[in-house]
Amino acid sequence: MSKTKAPDGPFNLASLDVREFESLFQQHYQWLCLLCYKINGNWNEAEDLVQEFFVRCWQKRESIVIRESWNAFAARSVKNAALNQLQKNDIRHKHEIAAQDNTTSVNERPDQDTGEDERYLRLITAINQLPEQRRKVFLLSRRPDLRYTDIAAQLGISVNTVKMHMRLSYQELRKVLETSLLFFYLFFK
């Protein structure tokens, strides 16, 4: 298990068995999709790209050498894939994106970018690690059409229990946000 615990250091894919590879997938899938979506703005395509990335990783696991951390490697790979696809899709479209990029180049500063990416990974990980029921409550709470009473009814629990879960979720996620807010302030305040 320890091998798949979001490795930070140099990392050897070939040493993983299918189960370990699966947990690597489970832990990083949503995050990597998010990174693709930031580039191509399409969840379906983002999902396809990330799945293809994992298939490639598995098939070439003997020959892939990861010198950086797994996180950095995976993020870079899927972002490149998304950019390549964009390029292939429509050259004209690409120019528009490039033009937009110029105007918002502040956001593209590499340090800030990686910082934000990491923040998302920590948030998603923290949310997925919430106890099952609490996670359900939290995910339902993200839907704008559902109020606490709706969530309570849907899960067959009391409104107070929903509130309790929300309070505990926020407290947990706050720990993650705390560090990333610093980043935010450094750049914009």
Binding site: Q30, W31, Q51, L139
Partner: peptide
């Protein structure tokens, strides 16, 4: 912090992805 969390559409979108389903597809490949 709460405002940041709630307004984050990227996060909301990503959390809705069905990881298990995606894994099944990938595993098949």
């Amino acid at each position: 912090q709460l405002e940041q969390l709630q307004a984050d559409e990227l996060l909301t979108g990503a959390l809705q992805l069905d990881t298990q389903h995606a894994w099944n597809k990938t595993q098949a490949l």
